[in-house]
Design a binder for these strands. Structure first.
Lengths: 192, 192
DNA sequence: TTGCTTGTCTAGCGATGCTAGGATCGAATC
DNA sequence: GATTCGATCCTAGCATCGCTAGACAAGCAA
């Protein structure tokens, strides 16, 4: 039994290594540079080994996305917890979101721009994704306003942040006024 | 002289054909299906001909994006012109924006998701893109609120719409409550 | 007719994601 | 300790991608 357990441990370790290397490579040189050949070379195995862990490149992107979602949820909760009062909390949340997107562009892409083969907004949505949305909902629910469904409000707020994050990073919005845009968004959307 | 003029006309016509076919193919089967080989086959010329018109696939995407930007600007202005009063006008504008994105997903991708090699938010930004932003600004400037820079407000509003458009289409937001989300966004962001 | 420019095509390069089939290695059995 | 056998891994290759070099043909000027 012990032999098999050891093998499973090694396999799990190698799988974590694949995801970590994919993420690192993506952050360093962009997802285009994450080819199966390069990935295989970096983990010091041949290409087909990747396919014994993942069905394809898409699934590797999906694994990075899940890892990122868990981290983002934690970062959002930490930022919200550090502030008193709904308004300050929401502002901190928004900044933390955009900060995460800016600091981890490749991970953010894996989560929201690329196709990682993950289900969203459904029953079978993976737990880390649901939890990321929940982390937003926790702070945003209290500023949704009377008669507005908290979930719907969270969706709108999230979409707005997502728009700011992606357009800024793609050079579609000038980078200098980021802070002013966040303030405007929070002041208008959040009630009290 | 006439011979040369005829040739230039034919060349320009072929270039329009390339862009039209690329757009059609992208809308039908997605941008992944727009390969240089398939494109060449459909215009009934060999691959290298494409490269005598465009530097590469990126530039073809860029051409589709410019065409789309001009159409979108016209659609936004038409929607705004049909309504009286700032609030109604902005609501119509928002719906027209999301409607365009939904009806022309491939064109929308070319404009805002893919790399078409275009400059944004800069001096040398192509005219159709500037005009698209201007079309938004015309209606949104009057609801920016006191002391808020119209351009900044337009950026935030646009980013929010962009977030809704992309997240909805990628299946990240449930499709049914789209209208409620738009109403909420307009009600909160637009002043009076 | 002879040259030259202009236009187009065939063929090919180096990559990509992914896979079939053979080799190798280690654990279990005699 | 030798042998069998299954799991594990690698070499080699496929189809396709964006892009380009070089051959070829058509049309114009001399």
């Amino acid at each position: 039994m012990s032999v098999q357990e050891r093998k499973e441990r090694e396999r799990a370790g190698r799988e974590r290594l694949i995801v970590a290397v994919a993420r690192e490579l993506a952050e360093q040189q962009g997802w285009d540079a994450v080819t199966t050949r390069r990935l295989a070379e970096r983990i010091e195995y041949s290409q087909p080994v990747l396919y014994s862990h993942f069905r394809g490149k898409r699934e590797i992107i999906g694994a990075v996305a899940l890892e990122g979602a868990a981290e983002m949820a934690a970062a959002l909760r930490a930022a919200a917890r550090a502030e008193d009062g709904p308004h300050k909390r929401v502002a901190a949340l928004a900044r933390a979101y955009l900060d995460f997107a800016e600091r981890n562009p490749a991970v953010y892409d894996a989560m929201f721009q690329l196709d990682g083969g993950l289900a969203f907004a459904r029953e079978d949505t993976p737990e880390p994704l649901k939890d990321g949305f929940a982390a937003l909902l926790e702070s945003l629910g209290e500023v949704a306003g009377d008669g507005v469904h908290p979930g719907l409000f969270t969706e709108v707020f999230w979409a707005s942040l997502h728009g700011l994050a992606t357009l800024t990073r793609a050079g579609r919005l000038p980078p200098q006024d980021t802070e002013a845009r966040v303030e405007l968004l929070v002041d208008r959307l959040a009630v009290i």
